[in-house]
Amino acid sequence: MIPGPFSYHRPVTVADAVKLLSTLGDEARPLAGGHSLVPMMKLRLASPEHLVDLHGIAGLKGIRRDGNTIVIGAMTTQHELLASDEIGMSLPILDETVLLIADPQVRYRGTIGGNVANGDPGNDMPALMMTLGASYRLEGASGAREVAATEFYQGAYFTALEPGELLTAISIPVPAAGHGYAYEKLKRKVGDYATAAAAVVLTMAGGKVVTCKIGLTNLSETPLLAEDAAKVVIGTSLDPASLKKASAAAVAIMSPASDARGPVEYRKHVGGIMVTRALQRAAGRAR
């Protein structure tokens, strides 16, 4: 549990960070909250020669509203998300999810950028970002680009980030007023990754579902958007038959690994239950 040798860099601008990452190449890794990278280094599963610490870059912090979009700097901590009135008002599902990430100590240090950029299927934010239709700003030596969260995740720890690129901000369209939301996470204990989790954002009118998005955490190599399941419930009152169909449609796209949280069959089974419960709770909140 002792990391190998590495050099430490602390740039103060995004441009410098990008420059360092592109010149140092594959042997450099950006350091955000460090909750994934540092343990990997201590186990020597990762041995980067250079760490580019992003904590000195003031421009990577902060939450602002830009019209109907919330823009969050990548180095904003989970604790800062919880403390933000803007998030509490516009994106309450973000607070609900953040509170299910580990414990206060972790949330003081853990960042939203690190959480979404690492490509760890166990992280809670990626599926939520897909559910909310978020996009990520990626900056590299050749400039900046926006990539939708739904296009970002390619495999476990594989993302659309090109070598030398840095995820600098997350843009989230503000959901419609009166939307219903829920993040249902089954975990063994505080600090654990989800055995299965589901995010739901929906709108209702006259007792029927008008729009619906469903995201799934830790039920595949990447976060998933359960589009068929969402389609099933549109136009319904979330009656038991529709819920059952939606849950089955979501289970159909799950391919979790068997691990100490349970065998595949169990994880899919509770994945379906998380979808059902999230739909019901979200509907209860919709106005």
């Binding site: 414990d103 063994r188 204990k189 505080v190 600090g191 654990d192 990754y193 691990d259 100490a260």
Partner: peptide, 28 residues
């Protein structure tokens, strides 16, 4: 309710850290 040292069929310990070796917190 969960704490175990478990081996797979090849003799690898699969509960070698506090992620998988159940150590309850005050919450649980």
């Amino acid at each position: 309710m969960g704490q175990e040292i478990r081996y797979d069929a090849d003799g690898n310990v699969v509960t070698g850290s506090f992620m998988d070796f159940f150590m309850p917190t005050a919450v649980e």
